[in-house]
Simulated scan of single mutants.
Amino acid sequence: MTELNRRQLLQLACLSALGGHLLPATAQDKPERARLTLAVGGKAGFYYLPLTIAEQLGFFKAEGLSLEIRDFDGGSQALKAALAGAADVVSGAYEHTIGLQARGLSYQAFVLQGRAPQIAMGVSLKTLPHYRHLTDLRGRRIGVSAPGSSTNLVANLVLARAGIRPHEVQFVGVGTSAGALRAFRTGEIDALSNIDPVLTVLEKAGEIRIVSDTRTLKGTKDVFGGPMPAACLYAPQAFIERHPATCQALANGVVHALKWLQTAGPSDIIKAVPEAYMMGDRGLYLAAFNKVRDALAIDGLMPEAGPATALRSMALVDELVRADRIDLARTYTNTFAQRAKLKFRA
């Protein structure tokens, strides 16, 4: 046995111990569920780029999975699909697992796609040409991907800084692509909290003034006060316990995509991403990608301080979330991502 094999066996043994009662399958085990449905809200956005890459480049297929990916206007709608039994797994915001636990439901994130929310908020230079301060948004219509989504959470946090309560504005669900652009440009909304490439399109056209930006790690810290985990794959804890090999295969696909994205060049991105996601402008799409590249997860692991940041933020905007009643250890596991990291380390 080589020294490398000894180290790998030792690492796997440690991971098994860390997993407690939940012992994920090894890389050789076949998924218990080869066919399953995954719900996502706004798949064309960079927020979910690792999911798109894993799908388009066949990384999920290579793990023995056949996925039906159902795309919704926002993360809250994708979550509703899972709650209704229409999806097995959700690709959505980590903080949803906290909100679900506060409502007596046990969902767990098992691989991270983004280490920053990649959400920016801006005001319309058309309907608010004389904007000076966030208080100017009181009584205005603010576009979000869908009510209850992460874009809504960010908007609430930004507004709270100015003493504006959620009921003092009107949130409008506009999606994350053409619908968001249309609502903004027609004056249906006065401000927008959304993801790229939509924001970059509006910035390039000189139609929006950005007032808050979590597309970078620094901007994320400014808004949330610490690292804020974003997109992840999450599922009911019961599903994860019954289908560990399936969850491992999903985690492997995402971590493979994250590794690919670390070295992908412009031409690689253009070839891998569906043309429809680029909104008719490849150059602009690549410019937007460069803005958010740092926000993508590196290895699928949840950052140590991330869950606590998410809990503090949720407690500010969701009256059902009480920090003293949430067990963060039950909202995520790093065990699957650790195994996937070992598989794709070379």
Rank of each mutant, 00 (worst) to 15 (best):
S193R: 11
F46R: 08
K204S: 15
R165N: 09
K204Y: 04
G225M: 05
T200L: 12
V172R: 08
A87C: 10
A109V: 03
P227M: 03
R325E: 11
Y234N: 02
F72P: 12
C14T: 14
T220Q: 12
I142T: 08
D213M: 10
A120V: 13
V273N: 03
I240L: 14
L12F: 06
K259D: 13
V169K: 05
P227D: 08
Q262L: 08
Y94L: 10
V172N: 06
L157V: 11
Q248Y: 11
R282K: 13
A86Q: 09
M121S: 04
N252W: 07
T186G: 11
R182P: 00
A257T: 14
A102T: 03
D222L: 12
L23Q: 15
F344K: 00
H133M: 11
P227C: 09
V172K: 09
A54M: 06
G306V: 09
R242Q: 15
L342C: 13
E304D: 10
A17M: 09
Q113G: 15
L100F: 10
L134P: 14
S212N: 03
V144F: 07
F59G: 13
G20W: 04
T333V: 04
V292E: 02
K291E: 15
L79P: 07
V211E: 13
A230Y: 07
A251R: 01
G225H: 06
A257R: 06
S193Y: 03
G253P: 03
A39Q: 07
N334I: 01
G163E: 09
L157Q: 04
Q8A: 13
T37E: 07
Q8F: 07
T176K: 01
